[in-house]
């Protein structure tokens, strides 16, 4: 049985590591993009960003100062049990987030939406976001902590309800226009990972877009061939915009386009776009049934 203390410890370390280390798949993709760019400023944007991540890893600062929205995706096994029940997981996320904020691994960024008051600990109604997903058989719990930067969420979120008659042309036009708008002037901090949700209800559509952007390893395509084809076509199209890292003249506005699908109403075609910024921060903690924790930034 997992205790509150163990889950809090795992969440704290995962969000701390997420804020101070760059996941290996993201680093590889950024290095590839840097070597490909020819414009001196486009290259410099990536060189500086990689150096920034290096210094964070050495204990000097953060991968990015905007640690943004604190989020935890918790994958739970059918045989996993928690002392006090699963309600405890939200409390653990709050305690972990408050501690990481107090220790300056997270910037106190969450404020009341109307009064704009800042409690200083990144905690309040709805935040941190915790999503519990019961999708495994064993007694383990995997926590993926994501400090999601403000830029990618603020400037990289789009939704439109299309209709079946709009077809794939509508989806493609919408996504490529979203990419152009999101990457203008480096708003979402490109090269971005573009999550595209197609189908479901509005909230399901946005949720699958977000998870496609945040959680999928770079280089993995959707198992549905039609979705995978869309990913490849839209990625190739993004490279022709002439927009590169941080919105400069270049090629790499996008590291990957990740599509995810949900069945939807026969009259509907909802499409959502949610972007993740170039540093793609996420780190995971795997807790086995005995409460041993292993941390990893490897998602491939």
């Amino acid at each position: 049985m997992l205790t509150k203390e163990i889950i809090t410890e795992a969440m704290y370390n995962a969000i701390r590591l997420g804020a101070t280390k760059m996941p290996p798949d993201i680093r590889e993709a950024l290095e590839r993009a840097m070597n490909e760019e020819t414009d001196p400023m486009a290259k410099k944007h990536l060189e500086v960003s990689l150096q920034n991540a290096d210094s964070a890893e050495k204990g000097c600062g953060l991968v990015c100062a905007d640690t943004g929205f604190p989020m935890y995706f918790v994958h739970v096994g059918a045989k996993c049990t928690v002392e006090g029940g699963f309600n405890v997981v939200s409390e653990c996320a709050k305690a972990a987030t408050a501690r990481a904020t107090a220790e300056c691994f997270l910037r106190p960024t969450m404020v009341h939406p109307l009064s704009r008051k800042n409690p200083g600990d990144n905690i309040g109604p709805g935040m941190p976001k915790v999503e519990i997903i019961f999708d495994r058989e064993d007694d383990s719990m995997e926590i993926i902590a994501v400090p999601k930067g403000g830029g990618s969420e603020i400037f990289g979120t789009f939704y439109r309800m299309f209709f079946p008659a709009d077809g794939k042309a509508g989806i493609k036009k919408f996504v490529i226009e979203c990419i152009k708008d999101a990457c203008y002037a480096g708003k979402v901090c490109p090269p971005a990972v573009i999550g595209v949700g197609i189908g479901g209800t509005a909230d399901v559509c946005m949720s699958i877009a977000k998870k496609a952007a945040l959680l999928r390893p770079i280089g993995v395509h959707h198992s549905d061939p039609e979705a995978a084809e869309l990913e490849k076509e839209l990625y190739a199209a993004s490279r022709e915009l002439g927009i590169g890292p941080m919105g400069s003249r270049g090629i790499n506005a996008v590291l990957a386009v990740n599509v995810d699908l949900a069945v939807t109403h026969t009259a509907a075609l909802p499409v959502a776009v949610n972007a993740q910024c170039l540093v793609g921060r996420r780190w995971k903690a795997l807790i086995d049934g005995s409460g041993n924790i292993k941390y990893s930034g490897e998602f491939r």
Binding site: H45, E47, V48, Q51, N52, G61, C64, C189, M246
Partner: peptide, 12 residues
Amino acid sequence: LSKIGLSGNALR
């Protein structure tokens, strides 16, 4: 003036 890359640690 606009920033070059993510540079918060160097700027610090």
